[in-house]
Design a protein around this nucleic acid. Structure first.
Lengths: 126, 126
DNA sequence: CTCGCAAATGCAAATCTTTGCGTATCATTA
DNA sequence: TAATGATACGCAAAGATTTGCATTTGCGAG
């Protein structure tokens, strides 16, 4: 892969964010620095970054695919389907689970951003 | 929710399938029985069925969202990112993991179709 | 049975995403 | 430095998905 300026800017943009960005949000942000950039270029850059394992691609249940930098290491989320609350899952718990699955299946798991859906404590009683 | 004929046919269609279907595949199949049905009607029916927990909505890494009947109970998959091989994950292992996460987080997990990505045994040595 | 409401549908437009193709740009090698 | 090949890019078209709005349909209350 060649050093692409669009990729660099996307990575910088995502790294600054503490939240996930949709492709449209990425596009809007990129545009502030590269006003002439094409939408398809952003899509392809995101695709390459995902392929390279530098960003995660997830559906957080909002209907839109969201992207996130993986430079800070793998992490995982719980999303409340009712109120939208997002909570982090202990990485050790996920890691242990992955180890078990790998031992059982002989698969080598590459998932770096697991998203589980459900109800948070406050919304559970419905 | 009212008894929708499109929803019923979608459920029947998905229940007969052992594999996941994309929205387009669902649409094509539905059309054989309801030739005049509109694309957006199918999309909305799938959305309602997902909301009702009758079908699962997943990204299997192929780029297209796939749908599957949940009438046979929850199940989980490992997908090889290289050769596309799909393998089932032992449900007990996943269940135990969910229990642990629920105890730690006070979230009530609703995910019924977990998909993890990685490399299968044959493709792991790259 | 009829009325009235809420849900489902069709249609068209808007929006989002992907893809083919020609061009431009970067990196490597000679 | 110039040639060469591969990668990234822009543009436009195609394809997929969502959305607003008007209409139809099914279900329950009266």
């Amino acid at each position: 892969m060649r050093a692409s300026s669009v990729e660099q800017i996307i990575l910088e943009t995502l790294s600054k964010q503490s939240v996930h960005l949709t492709s449209q949000q990425v596009f809007q942000t990129i545009r502030q620095r590269l006003p002439a950039v094409n939408q398809s270029t952003v899509y392809r850059a995101l695709e390459r970054l995902a392929e390279a394992g530098k960003i995660s691609v997830s559906d957080m249940g909002t209907g839109a695919t969201v992207y996130e930098s993986l430079s800070a290491g793998p992490h995982h989320h719980l999303v409340c389907q009712r109120c939208g609350h997002v909570q982090t899952i202990d990485h050790a718990t996920v890691g242990a689970f992955f180890e078990t699955v790998q031992a059982q299946s002989h698969f080598q798991i590459a998932t770096r951003h697991l998203v589980l859906f459900g109800r948070c404590e406050g919304c559970a009683t419905d």
